[in-house]
């Protein structure tokens, strides 16, 4: 509650970002809403359809495939990314020689245009000439598994998504620095080992931040996985990496079904909200137990 009060007192600081958000995202999203209930090909004026688009999505097996794929990729990439980011943050939070360089390296993929790293990955993943193929072969896995096996392709997408952990690392480093050093000193004096310190001190202190990041990341992973799915796996094999945003894109900009695409976006939005609600529920519970 004190957080809310603090927000009410300082809300004006959020104004510039909020206005931009409203102008660039909120307003268009609001205007997309009626589109979701119309048939619109971009060439003729929209025609009101009622719930027709949503009904169509309900009966569209590809929509469910895409939704399932998106959720699977998120289920793989969000926890993994968070775990990796946490590990990196704990390694990199202390000022040490060269740590600035490493932090920049962790952040760099997030600052690189999607298309650039997607193309880079395309090369890395090349089943004959790429380093990834060599790695897979070293483990006795067929180097083209991500081209033939839908589940493997989704895992590869999740793997690619791992590299977008820069922002998470930055936030987690900041959060780690917020934990008073005296708590660590006390733990040391009390004879707590590294694992106990992590489990009983670091992890619970970071938990609220971690959960918040998980919410944000889950919502974001629906979107960040778009470029690699478009460029690298192209939705295949067997629609195995046809992710929801990719399907939206295809419908809207390739098949000129703007109305349907808007309805799918609406569905995507609803699923995202649902995911965030579930996670916030857990966040509440955990923070009540935790800090």
């Amino acid at each position: 509650m004190s957080g809310l009060r603090a927000f009410l007192r300082n809300w004006h600081w959020t104004l510039p970002g909020f206005v931009l958000l409203l102008l660039l995202l909120g307003l268009p999203a609001l205007m997309a809403l009626p589109l979701a209930f119309s048939d619109f090909d971009g060439l003729h004026p929209p025609r009101y359809l009622g719930l027709g688009n949503l009904a169509k999505a309900w009966n569209d097996p590809l929509f469910w495939t895409a939704l399932g794929n998106s959720l699977t990729v998120a289920a793989w990439s969000v926890p993994l990314r968070l775990l990796l980011a946490l590990g990196l943050a704990l390694l990199l939070h202390r000022p040490r020689r060269g740590v600035g360089l490493l932090r920049s390296a962790a952040l760099a993929p997030s600052l690189t245009p999607d298309i650039a790293w997607a193309l880079l990955w395309l090369w890395i993943l090349n089943p004959l000439y790429g380093p990834f193929a060599w790695l897979l072969q070293a483990f006795g896995i067929a180097p083209d598994i991500w081209l033939t096996d839908a589940a493997a392709a989704r895992r590869v997408l999740a793997l690619i998504g791992l590299w977008l952990l820069g922002e998470l690392v930055v936030v987690l480093i900041a959060a780690r620095k917020e934990i008073p050093q005296e708590l660590y000193d006390l733990s040391t004096v009390e004879g707590a080992g590294a694992w106990t310190v992590f489990r009983r001190l670091t992890l619970p202190m970071l938990l609220p931040v971690l959960l918040l990041l998980a919410c944000r990341d889950a919502a974001l992973s629906f979107q960040t996985s778009f470029t690699p799915a478009l460029i690298i796996t192209k939705g295949g094999p067997q629609f195995g990496t046809l992710l929801l945003p990719l399907y939206v894109y295809q419908n809207g900009f390739e098949y000129l079904r703007f109305g349907y695409a808007a309805a799918l976006t609406l569905a995507m939005f609803a699923v995202t909200l649902l995911m965030i609600a579930v996670q916030l529920f857990w966040l509440r519970r955990w923070t009540r137990i935790g800090a």
Binding site: L183, L186, E190
Partner: peptide
């Protein structure tokens, strides 16, 4: 045993 200036009680 050490008692710190801030008391270093674990808030969670």
């Amino acid at each position: 045993a050490m008692m710190f200036q801030s008391y270093a009680l674990f808030p969670h």
